[in-house]
Amino acid sequence: MKILLFTDTLCDTNGVSRFLQDLGTHCPAFHLVTATRKSCNLPFKNWTNLPVRLRLAMPFYPQLDLSFPSYAHAKTLFETFDPDLVHVSTPGPVGLLGRALARKYHKPLAGVYHTDFPSYVHNNLPLWGLKRLTQMSMRWFYKPFSLLFARSQSEIPKLQPLLHKTLTLFKAGVDTQVFTPLALPKEARLTLLYVGRISPEKNIGFLWEVWEILQNLLGPQAVQLWCVGECTHPLLRTQGEALGVHFLGKQPKEALPALYAKAHLFVFPSLTETLGQVVLESLSCGTPVVVSDQGGPRTILASTTRPCGLILSTRFSSTWAHAIKSLLLNEPRLSAMAEAARAENYDIKTSVEDFLAVHVRMRKEEAEPEGSTKEEG
């Protein structure tokens, strides 16, 4: 089984890139194709970096490039590799190229809906007409796909209008060799941790409101907030600094487990996540989480065997502040949640095996002659 996977993000610091790097490491059936001018030291050889003909900064997220690759090089790679099917991970220039080549050579086409782009655009530029245009673009892009993976159960209703064939759930996973509980002492001060882009679509303005109230409830010397990730919105950084937020910048994944271990609670108020890879990472490291009642993170918590955190409405920031205060001051409850989180198993190998098995089934179904009847049962 040979699969070409086209992605616009592979050498970046985000959940999609981390999953794809894990996929490349654990599943050589996938050959990853990207286009970037960034340095990328990957621990596997089954990937190709196409020459970049044009590079633009992604709107609202300048740290991420929109790289337009060489069509001639991609075409040669495609013909040489001769894939059984094509997987498109992102709807950017590289994804568009993969989509076009799959259609040109009549190869089955699969994909993952990693990012809720209509909501992403609307949160940064709240114009309903633009959101509607983005929704129409997504429908056009995914129309020829035979298979589309949803990152969480909450995304399936949104994705059903995009596809005429198969929609399936993506079994989530993280590298549990990296994201594992560490025997490190907690910070002396009660510590909240956020990992992700510091930008409007992550609902960071709401997090600042929660943080300000929480400091008033507990006292500024009793609690601290660490934020890990790129800040794409200077005003948010200025506001955070005025509230005493500690910005730790972009961190390699190898540094994250220690931060998860030292923190008492992971907070993630985003409303637009299709999954929330950092929530899985926090739980795998044994750190309880607080997430919003919208999007993929709530489905992660809802599927745990024992309570590992809180699912809260973001209607009122005071609700979050008081709930976090109560949890931080209830050591037995917090410890029970941490123990429950450590007991959950999100091994990436299981996720990758399931991911590949679905592609194999799809290929067999696509290969069946038209008009043939499958046995039932």
Rank of each mutant, 00 (worst) to 15 (best):
N203L: 01
P69T: 14
G95Y: 07
S292H: 11
P118M: 01
T48W: 01
R315D: 15
Y120E: 05
P157A: 06
K202Q: 09
E281F: 11
K158T: 15
L283P: 07
H322I: 13
T272N: 13
L327P: 10
L214Y: 06
T176K: 01
P43F: 03
K165P: 00
F316Y: 15
T80Q: 15
C308N: 10
E273I: 10
L97F: 09
M136D: 09
E79C: 07
E212D: 14
L328Y: 14
A74D: 09
W226M: 03
D82T: 14
F247N: 06
T272Q: 09
L225V: 13
E331Q: 12
L214I: 13
L207C: 05
V290Q: 07
E201F: 08
D65E: 15
L207Q: 08
P288A: 10
G309A: 03
P288E: 06
M136G: 04
L275T: 13
V223K: 00
L334W: 10
Y61C: 07
E79A: 14
A102T: 10
L275Y: 11
G95A: 10
A100M: 08
R237C: 02
T305I: 06
R18P: 00
V210M: 03
E209S: 14
T168G: 04
Y142F: 15
V290S: 12
P332I: 08
L190D: 11
L42C: 09
L283R: 05
A258R: 00
L20N: 09
S326W: 02
L193P: 07
G24F: 10
R361H: 13
Q177F: 08
V360P: 00
S372G: 08
L50V: 05
L280R: 00
K186F: 10
N14Q: 00
V94H: 06
F30N: 03
L248P: 05
L97D: 01
E376G: 10
G111C: 04
R333G: 08
L256G: 06
A255Y: 07
E344T: 11
A35H: 05
V16E: 03
S313K: 01
E254C: 00
V112K: 00
N14G: 14
N49K: 01
A343C: 04
P234C: 11
F316C: 09
R197Y: 09
K186M: 05
I300P: 06
L109W: 02
A242Q: 10
K253M: 02
A102D: 09
L5C: 13
V88L: 01
G92R: 01
M362V: 01
L301I: 10
V16I: 15
L169G: 12
T48M: 04
P369N: 07
M138W: 05
I3N: 01
L236T: 11
S119A: 15
L167S: 11
V210Y: 09
E281S: 12
R151G: 09
V278Y: 08
F266V: 14
S154G: 11
W140R: 07
F149Y: 15
G240E: 02
P28M: 07
G173F: 09
L66M: 14
S282D: 12
C227G: 12
Y113C: 14
S317R: 00
